[in-house]
Design a protein around this nucleic acid. Sequence first.
DNA 1: TTGATAATACGCGACGTCTCGTCTAGTCGA
DNA 2: TCGACTAGACGAGACGTCGCGTATTATCAA
Lengths: 193, 193
Amino acid sequence: MSEHRQGPVRSEAARVAILEATARLFQIRGYEHLTMEGIAAEAGVGKQTIYRWWPSRAALVADCLLEGRLFSERFNFPNTGDIRTDLVSWLGNVFGILEEPAGELLWRSLIAAATENEAVGRRLYESLGIGSSLVPRLRAAVEASDLRADAPVEEIGEALMGALILRALSRLPTQPGSAERLVDAVLGDSSRR
Amino acid sequence: MSEHRQGPVRSEAARVAILEATARLFQIRGYEHLTMEGIAAEAGVGKQTIYRWWPSRAALVADCLLEGRLFSERFNFPNTGDIRTDLVSWLGNVFGILEEPAGELLWRSLIAAATENEAVGRRLYESLGIGSSLVPRLRAAVEASDLRADAPVEEIGEALMGALILRALSRLPTQPGSAERLVDAVLGDSSRR
DNA sequence: TTGATAATACGCGACGTCTCGTCTAGTCGA
DNA sequence: TCGACTAGACGAGACGTCGCGTATTATCAA
């Protein structure tokens, strides 16, 4: 099957404009108020051009996530060498983000998008926490014998990520020392202080 | 301030019919497809009667939660005396619920409702996990010296609840032994095996 | 005690608005 | 000439508000 097609090819400009508009509106309005018509207007694009390439607004959000258009580098995981310090400072950092209205909106919107789209949920799981920075860092700690060899790193990562999600859903103010206690709860006897 | 009003009093029959219809539709359709018009039709009630007493469909869900119309007793926390056993069997139980389509839909719908309504989020936090059965059981374990006296019980509860939420969002199949490893991760050296 | 009156919850359903996803219609570049 | 593009009309469906007519209840005069 030869792939010689006549006519124009998919417009990269339109693709980028759509993703940028999606990310921008997602961040300032939240997922609840993200509409296809709003995105089309913001991107200066016909609605049909969006529907031609994406089946739903959740798919758009998933692509934004894939291209790293939604996370700031503030979510990055530190590596000072000490796993306990890194976890506490990362958690404290994210707690701080959650206390800003914009950060809270972004985080909660991501959760909302994940509830209705598998790809977003998977990507949230992988790209923010478990797949990328958090668990690899935990594995490195095991490698360096900072954690027990049989420490359940996947589950530790899930527990931490999950606690952050629950925090956003409950909307309870973060108590002082919460990050430390959470790391305590989760690292327990896996660490060799 | 006279509290004597003229006119008919709020109809209990309508209130109950609305909450029952909400719970029923929530469970079979999910939060995404829950509509005010659908609830009104199902309850045999005028839309205005709903809007007179509840500001949004999320508030309806919050009230259903408050009256225990959404949780089955399958979410209840066991108490055999051994905290580790109880945690593992409870987690395994909930994992099992999540593997049924209906259970997964219910759980994910609750998360979706929580993202857009503070009261739902709070109630999810309190009534299912942290406030009611899970953390009190952990406190009892501390009391019975099955857990370290300074074990961060709140955070342990949050980590477990959070892991369950993340599991639903990522939609990953539950691996064998996952419940045990999660309890391991979270109980760590707090327990005295 | 009785009946008139006023207030108000109710079911019903029309209204205007918004967004959805589909669909033409016309333009333009490879 | 083909196909992606912008523009926007379209029907469907849900939103939240409004007014109608009816039913129910407290107040008060006779």
